[in-house]
């Protein structure tokens, strides 16, 4: 419990960007990531008295944002389409460098659990124990996911790099 809970404005200013990057890396859609993070903050604001007193309010917001991203209520776009779309749309991202496109594209080919573990490890800076607790699995399972994901990314990124060189 926090004796002096953080203000909503502080948490928003300090974490909106990081959470958006994490969601973007996982789902591959920059605007969608920004939308769901904003929506997660809206839901947090509505119950800030409670959320602010959690040990880690940002973890709550991250969890809601991730859940929204896959469960998100949308009339014109469904989360189900979203999951499928992210496997196709990376190449149409406007502006980012080739390394970033390649990384996001490679992440998108990973199984969901491995992709989630990679994002939580490398972008949310969670420890293996924290990821295991969040995912409800043993630490060994997380290590296995990360190992397989790294191997897959190494292959993917290596192939992409060769392709770039040929171009």
């Amino acid at each position: 419990m926090h004796d002096d809970p953080p203000t909503f404005d502080e948490v928003y200013a300090g974490h909106f960007g990081d959470l958006t990057v994490q969601l973007y890396a996982y789902f591959g859609d920059h605007q969608e990531a920004q939308d769901v993070v904003q929506e997660a903050f809206c839901r947090a604001y509505g119950r800030w008295k409670t959320v602010s007193r959690y040990d880690d309010p940002v973890a709550w917001i991250r969890r809601v944002a991730w859940n929204l991203a896959v469960s998100r209520w949308r009339r014109t776009r469904t989360a189900l389409n979203f999951l499928r779309r992210q496997r196709r749309d990376e190449a149409r991202l406007d502006g980012p460098g080739p390394d970033r496109v390649a990384l996001v594209a490679a992440l998108a080919t990973l199984p969901a659990a491995q992709r989630r573990a990679m994002v939580l490890r490398y972008l949310a800076d969670l420890s293996i124990a924290e990821i295991a607790e969040r995912e409800g699995v043993a630490e060994g399972t997380v290590k296995s996911w990360l190992h397989r994901a790294r191997a897959a990314l190494a292959t993917q990124l290596g192939a992409d790099t060769m392709e770039v060189r040929r171009g």
Partner: peptide, 9 residues
């Protein structure tokens, strides 16, 4: 903990 994925629309 232990939840799977979700969706809707």
């Amino acid at each position: 903990p232990g939840s799977g994925w979700g969706g809707g629309g």
